[in-house]
């Protein structure tokens, strides 16, 4: 890597995680630079979700360290990571389905401003301008009073992205941002995310199954296989790597896409 180490927004050093006999993360090391749009790919069961949960604090590593912007965040609970500048989305869209669109955004903003312990003032009127700005940013044009669970799948994904951005993250983790979308919607969806991330200067790490989606936007790609990163390079080098092609050989569609 030709970047100076200090620019790494995310720095993972020799992280291990076992579930019984399964080594879900096997000595993973990874640097993600400021402003990068970084893809993590790998076959099903390669350990992508475990790796994401380790970075975002939902799992604690057995060994190894994780740094965000030079700060050691290993083993910190997720709610503290949010305040340190890390936001994430989930593979299965995770919003507050019972609450309305506005409230979904208000919670994130009020949490960011550490106002959730205010037990007296009316929440309804708070952070309205910022909510509107976020809705505009992701292109979600719905009634803000609408119950979030009644939105279409695509709109729920947009809402989740807006909610994740409300915390002004330095590092945004997107777990399969196009999951559940039709093939023709995926490219457009990831390009929107890409445009917003570049516009805001947010560093993004995302997992994705669709190779066309990955190669259209990623600045850098890491390939996970059986809990180990076997390649970490620019898209062109990954495309031409015999090692990577070999792993994807069994999965014909994806090998073709490479």
């Amino acid at each position: 890597m030709n970047h100076p180490k200090s620019e790494a927004v995310l720095r993972v050093v020799e992280v291990n995680k076992r579930f019984g006999g399964l080594r879900a993360s096997n000595n993973i090391s990874l640097d993600v630079m400021q402003g990068e749009f970084h893809a993590i790919i790998g076959p099903n069961g390669a350990g992508k979700s475990t790796f994401f949960n380790l970075i975002s604090g939902f799992l604690k590593p057995d060994s190894g360290r994780i740094f965000m912007a030079g700060e050691d965040i290993t083993g910190r609970p997720p709610y503290r990571l949010f305040h340190a500048g890390l936001s994430r989305t989930f593979q299965i869209t995770s919003i507050f389905a019972e609450l309305d669109v506005l409230e979904n955004l208000q919670i994130a903003l009020l949490s960011y401003h550490r106002r959730l312990f205010d037990g007296f003032r009316t929440a309804r009127h708070m952070e309205l301008a910022e909510c509107e700005r976020l809705l505009d940013l992701v292109g979600l044009y719905v009634e803000s009073g609408r119950q979030a669970g009644t939105l279409s799948h695509g709109d729920q994904k947009k809402l989740e992205l807006a909610v994740a951005l409300a915390g002004k993250p330095r590092l945004l983790l997107l777990d399969e941002p196009t999951a559940g979308m039709a093939a023709n919607e995926r490219l457009e969806a990831i390009k929107t995310v890409h445009r917003i991330a570049k516009q805001l200067g947010v560093t993004v790490v995302f997992t994705e199954h669709d190779m066309q989606v990955v190669f259209s936007v990623a600045d850098r790609i890491s390939v996970l296989h059986q809990g180990t990163i076997i390649a970490d390079d620019i898209p062109e080098a990954i495309r031409n790597s015999p090692k990577v092609q070999q792993i994807y050989l069994g999965e014909t569609d994806e090998a073709d896409a490479l």
Binding site: P77, Y79, F82, S87, S94, F96, A97, I107, A108, A166
Partner: peptide
Amino acid sequence: AQRGNPNRSVALGI
């Protein structure tokens, strides 16, 4: 919020 979705709440700093 935490009633309906504790994971999302935790990920949002609650």
